[in-house]
């Protein structure tokens, strides 16, 4: 069987501020047997502008994205939010087929591992108490889990992988899928509320003695990390790709 050909899409803020998350994603996909390429001219998916009401300014961002990724069998991204934006809104003028291909073959990293690669176990060790943050766009947009609102059979793809990690203990939370208040420009436009939401989320994790909060969206983790560092709180954040790739605490 030939190797799945993956174009690695790294969100702009991950590229700039969290290269270790991108490196972990790359190495993890390679370990799992993929042929991974990072197209060098990529920038961003255009979500920050679109969610602020400026989707109409995204013409060149979209063109660039489709040009960079249309040739790959799969487009994989370590962010639920950016993936959702691509799947729902990516459209380059005059390139309907390429755009469609990009939308239909974009995957968030975890769902790519569980659904496309069919991997159900990750053999690394992480001997820590972990709180799992279900970021909203991945949860309710990409349906990475069943969510507490709907009355359907329960499932949770990221948790299912985390549970197979040796030594890793997932803590129960009071509110298992509450928003952390990041929300892109919401984080600055509604600063007071955003921070209050973030604090509430962190408090829930600390209350249940998690040593680290993990999740598939670094943006939510960056927001919570900002509060944790400012207030000197006894907890850390770590992207799920790092844990799945065997990083320590």
């Amino acid at each position: 069987m030939s190797k799945p050909k993956v174009g690695l899409f790294i969100p702009c803020y991950v590229d700039q501020f969290y290269p270790q998350v991108a490196i972990a994603s790359l190495e993890l996909l390679e370990k799992l047997g993929c042929e991974v390429t990072y197209p060098m001219n990529q920038t961003c998916c255009g979500q920050p502008t679109a969610n602020s009401g400026y989707e109409h300014l995204n013409t060149s961002v979209n063109d660039l994205f489709v040009d960079n990724f249309a040739s790959f069998e799969y487009i994989v991204c370590p962010s639920g939010s950016c993936t959702l934006h691509v799947k729902e809104h990516m459209h380059a003028e005059g390139k309907p087929n390429e755009s469609l291909h990009v939308r239909e073959n974009s995957y968030e990293l975890v769902e790519f591992i569980t659904d496309v690669l069919g991997v159900s176990e990750i053999s690394v060790v992480f001997p820590h108490k972990v709180g799992y943050h279900a970021s909203c766009h991945g949860l309710r947009g990409l349906r990475l889990g069943s969510g507490s609102e709907r009355n359907i059979a329960q499932f949770n793809k990221p948790e299912q992988l985390l549970k197979t990690i040796e030594g890793l203990e997932l803590v129960d939370l009071d509110m298992k899928d509450e928003c952390c208040g990041f929300g892109g420009t919401f984080a600055v436009a509604e600063e007071a509320l955003s921070v209050k939401m973030g604090k509430d989320r962190i408090t829930d994790h600390i209350k249940h003695e998690a040593e680290v909060i993990t999740g598939y969206d670094m943006s939510c983790l960056m927001h919570m990390e900002g509060i944790i560092n400012r207030d000197g709180l006894p907890i850390k954040v770590k992207h799920i790709a790092e844990i799945l790739n065997g990083a320590g605490l």
Partner: peptide, 16 residues
């Protein structure tokens, strides 16, 4: 507004 009650991420030496 970000930094009123939150730290910014520490910038790494090199981007990905």
């Amino acid at each position: 507004a970000w930094g009123k009650q939150r730290d910014l991420p520490k910038p790494p030496k090199e981007s990905f």
